[in-house]
Design a binder for these strands. Structure first.
Length: 579
RNA sequence: GCGCCCGUAGCUCAAUGGAUAGAGCAUCAGUCUUCGGAACUGAGGGUUGCAGGUUCGAGUCCUGCCGGGCGUGCCA
């Protein structure tokens, strides 16, 4: 069987179907077969899960179904397992079905079938790993969304790496994805930034302007002040002060936003849309949701402020949507961030009609999650369409000490600095390697010092090594195209194929659980298995007797290169030809 | 006080309710006459914070403690 030569496929569509799902179908048929034969009593077909066992002795896949079935089938688990194994329909992918105590059914994949998968992988090209999705969704992933009031710190890097990788994974899982950055350009912070920048602007022009006590103190504000002074001259010294602050604040925010875009681009993070918070108010979305909430009696006034009656929806506290004029004089600054959030969820799910909206938030905002979901519910939206993914904080260590980070004092390690020191690939890899709900200690000394032993280089090295092999093969004239993958029978070869076949499973897992961290772990494992293969199996041989095997192995390593490259690309990490 | 997250090997971390809890780093011992040694093989290292509970089965779920982080604003 060789797909590329047009032989009939044994399993139709297998290249995009998860093997475990295929095996689950076999198990279901085994149940029906056994019931028809009277070997099992009648019972409702349960959900069948096939999983990867921990030990090789337990085969490539296994199911604990018999253990769960014991009650309904009124039999001992191991006996059920044996019955299932006996009634398993034959399948080209499966060489053997075994059972083990206390009631597992194990599948051992056919080695001939495994070898043929190299052709399938090569045929899939750089789309290998993609899932066939019976129900693709329009999903929006919104991430980073940091306030454009200063350079980003490492936490925003984690946000961006998570969001972008997640978006890549969801695309691979067959969904349509829109990537969005929410610009917090509303409220008092624009004015705060404007006041700070105005002071630096004026100082740059030699004016005696006092810096506001609660202003943004970073050097970047001084730089922007100078830049705006050069651009506009002293025209804003003569303009009305409020207008100067508003205009310069707006300019500064756009400058910072562009810098943020640039920094993220260094990490391969990009967006389809930059969405303005202010537009929710200017465009009337907030007024609209406020009207809906009012109609439902979920809005009330107290102490001159407008409140969202979250308690009526089971939340702990009510929350202010529009602040009192007595507290905030400027009407533009009265709506709270919650007001924007409520309008935003409406915009995402009702106006733009995404099937699903995924938010990537720092854990310091976790307290807001229930309120936003409650608001969605109140607006008649299904709250399960909105998923707020929280990630824990990143703390930086340098010289064994915690690096305190604060935008106000301007003392922090920026994401740009980190990328400069550690490199974008290592930064991205490290930031997604840990589960989002683990607090991350990022040791700068270690990250720089260990850059040679960094896992990301281990993976990239495997890729570069294969590139080198292929180059060498080209020089010697060995051609992969004519290779017969049936010759791939060495245990190390088969291990490598098995590892490659796990990529779609990883994508499925990461997409289902919204957990990108599975990818880097998989990448390390795949690279390791390749290195082990490399040690054991010579690819390009000068011995003419090995010519056939060389060609077959060239196909194998080409497939491995492609799988590594895909995995790296999903993580936004470069797959270098040499390093 | 209350809410959320975390606690797993010396360190950093994995483990869709499944079988004897796994990797990397570090430590120790090995491997190389040809494709990239940024490599490979092996060893030691654990009462999964503690105590109960749920069930055929718990690192995972529930309850209570202990320890750490983050929240608990008419801040964003």
């Amino acid at each position: 069987m060789n797909f590329s030569r047009g032989h009939p496929r044994i399993i139709t569509g297998m290249e995009k179907m998860l093997i475990k799902n295929h095996l689950a179908e076999l198990v279901k048929r085994a149940i029906t077969n056994a019931q028809t034969a009277g070997a099992l009593p009648a019972f409702a077909l349960p959900a069948v899960f096939v999983e990867r066992p921990q030990k090789k002795e337990w085969g490539d896949f296994s199911t604990s179904l018999a253990l769960k079935l014991a009650k309904d089938a009124k039999r001992a688990p191991l006996q059920i397992a044996q019955t299932l194994a006996a009634h398993m329909p034959p399948d080209a992918a499966v060489a053997q079905v075994t059972t083990s105590a206390p009631g597992f059914v194990n599948f051992i994949l056919s080695e001939a079938w495994l070898a043929q998968q190299v052709e399938t992988i090569l045929a899939a090209g750089e789309r290998f790993g993609d899932l066939e999705n019976p129900a693709p969704q329009n999903i929006q992933v919104e991430y980073v969304s940091v306030n454009p009031t200063g350079p980003m710190h490492v936490g925003s890097g984690r946000n961006g790496a998570l969001g972008d990788t997640l978006a890549n994974i969801l695309v691979a899982a067959g969904h349509r994805v829109q990537r969005e950055f929410y610009i917090n350009d509303n409220g008092s912070q624009v004015r705060h930034l404007g006041e700070s920048v105005f002071a630096r602007y004026a100082q740059a022009l030699g004016a005696d302007e006092k810096f506001p006590a609660d202003g943004y103190q970073g050097a970047y504000v001084t730089d922007i002040g100078k830049r705006l002074a050069a651009q506009y001259g002293d025209q804003y010294l003569r303009a009305p002060r409020a207008q100067a602050i508003r205009d310069l604040g707006g300019s500064a925010m756009e400058i910072i936003r562009a810098q943020i875009e640039q920094t993220l681009a260094r990490m391969g993070i990009r967006f389809d849309q930059w969405f303005s918070e202010r537009s929710l108010h200017d465009g009337g979305a907030f007024a609209q949701v406020l009207a809906i909430l009012k109609r439902k009696g979920l809005v009330f006034e107290k102490d001159d402020a407008v409140w969202f009656a979250a308690q009526a929806l089971g939340e702990e506290k009510d929350a202010v949507l529009i602040r009192s004029p007595k507290v905030i004089t400027n009407p533009d600054e009265r709506p709270t961030y919650l007001a924007s959030d409520v309008a935003y969820v409406w915009n995402k799910l009702a106006v733009r009609k995404f099937d699903r909206a995924i938010y990537v938030w720092g854990a310091d905002h976790h307290g807001d999650v229930p309120r936003v979901l409650a608001a969605a519910r109140a607006l008649g939206l299904d709250p399960t369409r909105a998923t707020i993914l929280l990630y824990q904080f990143v703390t930086l260590k340098r010289g064994g000490e915690l690096v305190k980070m604060s935008k106000r004092t301007g003392e922090f390690v920026t994401l740009d600095e980190l990328i400069g020191e550690v490199g974008p690939d290592a930064v991205r890899f490290m930031l997604i390697a840990q589960s989002a709900n683990t607090t991350m200690d990022f040791d700068l000394d270690l990250a720089v010092k260990q850059s040679d032993e960094n896992p990301v280089y281990y993976v990239q090295y495997a890729h570069a090594r294969i590139a080198s092999i292929l180059k060498k093969a080209a020089e010697t004239g060995a051609r992969a195209a004519a290779g017969d993958v049936a010759l791939l029978t060495h245990p190390a070869e088969l291990e490598l194929i098995r590892a490659m076949l796990r990529l779609p499973e990883m994508i499925d897992l990461a997409a289902t659980k919204l957990e990108p961290h599975h990818l880097p772990h998989y990448a390390i494992e795949l690279a390791g298995i390749f290195h082990a293969f490399y040690k054991q199996c010579r690819v390009v041989s000068s011995d003419p007797a090995d010519a056939e095997l060389t060609r077959a192995r060239l196909k194998l390593v080409a497939a491995a290169k492609q799988t590594l490259a895909r995995t790296l690309r999903l993580m936004g990490v470069a797959a270098p030809e040499s390093m």
